[in-house]
Simulated assay, not measured.
Amino acid sequence: MTAVRSERERSDASALGTGSDPEALLDIRNLSMRFHVGRGFLGMGARMTVNAVSDVNLTVRRGETLGLVGESGCGKTTLGRCILRAYKPTSGELRYRREDGAVVDLATLGTRQLRPYRRQIRTVFQDPNSSLNPRMTLLQIVGEPLLANDLARGDELRERVAEGLRLVGLRPEYMRRYPHAFSGGERQRIGIARALITGPRLVVADEAVSALDVSVRSQILNLLDDLQEQLGLTYVFVSHDLSVIQHLCSRVAVMYLGRIVEEATTDDLFERPRHPYTETLLRALPLPDPRLRGSRKRIPLRGEVPDPASPPAGCTFHPRCPYAQERCDTEEPALLPLRSRRTARCHYADTLDLEGVVAD
């Protein structure tokens, strides 16, 4: 009787109904991730709290590619790891829609309860050199998730690994080789095959092309695009490179110091940014036409990224913002809804005339 009641309580705690947006695969609500670290020599001093992710609200819809962009240290990778449940969020919800339509809060699940969702939410790592075990063959690397999730063994496993390699443009006879026999682009294809081998619905790609040569990046981006259309995948693509985001993503969320400061469709964000930080990122993009390089005004950011353990009062971007006014020093802006289903965390998002870039 106790076991039955315990199972029912776990089911009630995880099934949260059908949710409000039928197209939402993942609904992130008020998500925060805090780390407690020591200060001083060897971390032995007084402890401090680092707010890596603060009160993030995002919706990832089925079949789309959502880009998370920002400079190093903005919290985008931490948010991606929370989605994967590599980190257990300090607070907030990760409302994941199952195939039967029920919604589960992944943030509250324990290790055993998370196991069925590990094969549905997968990741592609940044560095293909360090993410592949040099002592394992492709058969072992790509087939490991099948063994870990009890999905296939023996001949069936080999057949599925061969199909996974074909899917990413590699020959099945390569499965007996080791990672050192492949180029950087081929290694990343191996990492993609490993991520897709369990048939996931959501893939988190963390800087998936930043470690690759420029000549190879477009091949991997096109492969990810083709696989999304072929398999019906949903992507969360983490990157600091806006040119990559523009190529692959349908919607973009810009992060600064652990918060979402702007969210919009890719076309809207590039044509007319609504937050000064977004404008600064866009102005850093190189112009392919040399005749246009003198036509764009550059406004360099002042100062450095603030300490996330001691963020500035008011708007966290105001010490570096060229448009900051007195109100920005003391009053924290909310993430305000704007027209065209976009949001911006700026007091003057409706009045500033910010400069975008022309779409390719």
Rank of each mutant, 00 (worst) to 15 (best):
N57R: 07
L147A: 15
N129E: 13
V142C: 10
S91Q: 11
E64L: 14
V37L: 12
G63D: 05
D127F: 10
L138Y: 02
R61V: 05
A24G: 13
A107Q: 10
P89T: 08
T123P: 01
N129F: 14
L25A: 01
N30R: 15
G73H: 12
L84V: 04
R95M: 14
A52C: 03
E156V: 13
M44A: 12
N30P: 02
I121P: 00
P22H: 04
R97F: 06
R153E: 14
L26F: 10
E144R: 03
E99D: 14
R95A: 10
P134E: 09
N51R: 12
G164K: 01
D27I: 05
N149P: 00
S72Q: 09
N51T: 12
N149H: 15
A24D: 09
S54Q: 13
L68F: 10
R81I: 08
E93Q: 15
K76V: 02
R118T: 00
L109W: 02
T77L: 09
S130R: 10
V53R: 01
R95T: 02
T111S: 12
E99P: 09
A152H: 08
R119L: 11
H36Y: 11
G143N: 14
D150V: 03
R119W: 08
L147C: 12
L79T: 00
E144C: 02
D155S: 15
V168S: 03
R115W: 05
R160F: 03
R98H: 12
L106H: 02
L157H: 08
F35E: 11
R160K: 14
N30F: 04
M136N: 00
E71M: 06
Q126H: 12
D105Y: 13
M33H: 11
S54K: 13
M44D: 12
N30S: 13
I121K: 01
P89Q: 09
I83G: 00
E159Y: 04
P145I: 05
P116Q: 09
L106A: 06
F125Y: 11
E93T: 04
G154I: 06
S131M: 05
C74Y: 05
T123M: 15
L165V: 07
L139K: 15
T78I: 03
N149T: 03
L165S: 02
G164E: 06
L26P: 00
Y117I: 01
V161F: 05
L79E: 04
Q113V: 03
A162M: 04
G92Q: 07
R85M: 03
Q140R: 14
